[in-house]
Nucleic acid binder design. Structure first.
Lengths: 212, 212
DNA sequence: CGTGCGATGTATCGGTCCGATACATCGCGG
DNA sequence: CCGCGATGTATCGGACCGATACATCGCACG
C-alpha cells in the first residue's frame, strides 16, 4: 500500500522523505494517522532497488566546492522513473482482496483521479460488498449473540454497525455518480457545507446506459 | 493489544485457539476484521512463556465413560493464571498513547465492563481528544489545501471528517453517561434497529468479586 | 460403501508496518 | 550565545497479517 501511495505522489512531483510523509498525511489523513519513518525509508530503499524511483541530486554545486566545512547530509530527493509509472499503473488497476480493506481502499480511492472509470466502479462495488459483509456480521452478533455480551460491547457493535450503514450509503452515492458519468460532485455527505446551487442535474431515474 | 484481548477473554472461560479467534471476532468485529492465526498462536505461546496462561488438559483423567467419540485429539485449551489476571488488570488500567488509536481504543472499550469508572472516563476523554485532533487536521486540509487536491481526495476527507464528527458526538454521550453514573444505555446512535427492551442494566456495579 | 468436501483445529514463514530512538542541521527568539 | 522546535535521514525490534500446510471429523451425495 505504501508503495502505491509513494509512486502516486512522486508522479505529481519529486520529493524528499520528509515532504513525502507530509503529503502522505495530507492525502491519507482521513484513513490513517501518519505514516511512520520506520516504513517510509525502507520502502523508499526498496523502490529504488527495484528501479521504480531514483535519487535526484538536490545540491546545485558539486561536493568539491563546499568541502569539509559541514559534512552536510543533504536532503535526498526522489523522483519516479518510467518503470515506476508503469508499476503504478499496474498496481492501481489490479484489485486484489487487500484493495477492499480500510487502508487499501483509502489509498486506491485517493488516487481515483488517476484511475479509469471501469476500475473505479469495480473498486467501489468491491468495497461496498465488503462493508455489507461486515455489516451483516455485526447484525448477526447484535441479534443472535446479544445476551452473551455486556452493554459496552453491544454499544461498540452498534456504533460499528452505524458506521457500516453510513459507509454503504456513501458508496451507493459514489457508485451512482460513477455510473451517471459525472465527476464526484459532493454527494451531500451530511456535514461539511459544500452547497452547490446547481440547477437540477440529470434526474437519477432510469439511466441504464453504461455497461461495466 | 492482542495480549490484552486474549487475557480478557480467557478470564470469562478457558478456550482453545480456534474458539478464541471466534470470540475475538465476535467481540471486536466492529473495529477489526478477524484476528490472524499468524498472530494468535505466537501470542498464546508468549503469554504461556510469561506464565499468564497455562494449558489445561481437555479431557479429565477419569473420563472413562465416553470413548474416542469426543474430540480429544489436538485441541489445546488455555486458561488464565492468577498472574495473568494481575497482568490484565494492569494493562486495562494503564493508558498509553496506543490506548487511543482505533484498535487500542476498541479493545479497551470492549472490556469496559471490567474497567473501573475513573479509567473508563479517562480513556473516553483521551479518545475524544485524539479524534478531535484528527478532525482539526482534516478541517485544515479541507480549508487551506483544498485547491491542491483533486475531487476524489477531497471527498475522502469529507467522509473522514464526517466520521470524526460523528464519533466525537458518540463519545460525548458516553462521557455524559459515565459522569451521570449510569451504565451505557443506547445513546441513540441514529440507526441500527435497536432491540433491547432491557430495563436499566445494573449501574456501574462491577463484578469485583474475583480476587486472585 | 466410499469418497470427497467443508468445518474444525494447530502451526509456521515471510513480509509490511509501527514506535522508539538516535543523530544532525537550521532559523529564531531570549 | 544558547536553547529549542522544526526539518531531515536513518535503524531496530516487535506486532500483526496473509498464505500456506497439514490433520481430523461429520455428513451429504453418488
Amino acid at each position: 500500500m505504501l508503495e502505491l501511495a509513494i509512486l502516486g505522489l512522486l508522479q505529481e512531483s519529486p520529493m524528499h522523505g520528509y515532504e513525502l510523509r507530509k503529503e502522505l498525511t495530507a492525502k491519507l489523513g482521513a484513513i490513517r494517522a501518519a505514516i511512520s519513518y520506520g516504513s517510509l525509508y525502507p520502502t523508499l530503499r526498496r523502490l529504488q532497488a527495484a528501479g521504480w524511483i531514483t535519487e535526484a541530486a538536490e545540491t546545485p554545486a558539486t561536493a568539491e566546492e563546499v568541502p569539509a566545512l559541514t559534512s552536510r547530509r543533504g536532503r535526498v530527493v526522489y523522483k519516479i522513473t518510467a518503470e515506476g509509472k508503469e508499476r503504478f499503473a499496474q498496481l492501481i488497476a489490479q484489485a486484489g482482496p487487500e484493495t477492499y480493506d480500510d487502508t487499501g481502499f483509502g489509498v486506491h480511492f485517493a488516487f481515483f483521479a488517476r484511475t479509469d472509470q471501469a476500475t473505479r466502479l469495480r473498486i467501489l462495488e468491491g468495497r461496498r460488498r465488503k462493508i455489507e459483509e461486515r455489516r451483516e456480521g455485526l447484525r448477526d452478533v447484535l441479534g443472535r449473540a446479544a445476551e452473551r455480551l455486556d452493554a459496552y460491547t453491544l454499544e461498540l457493535q452498534r456504533h460499528g454497525l452505524d458506521a457500516c450503514e453510513r459507509e454503504v450509503r456513501w458508496l451507493e452515492e459514489l457508485i451512482a455518480n460513477e455510473r451517471s458519468g459525472r465527476a464526484p460532485t459532493v454527494p451531500e455527505t451530511g456535514t461539511a457545507g459544500g452547497r452547490r446551487e446547481d440547477n437540477s442535474p440529470p434526474p437519477p431515474g432510469e439511466s441504464r446506459k453504461e455497461r461495466p
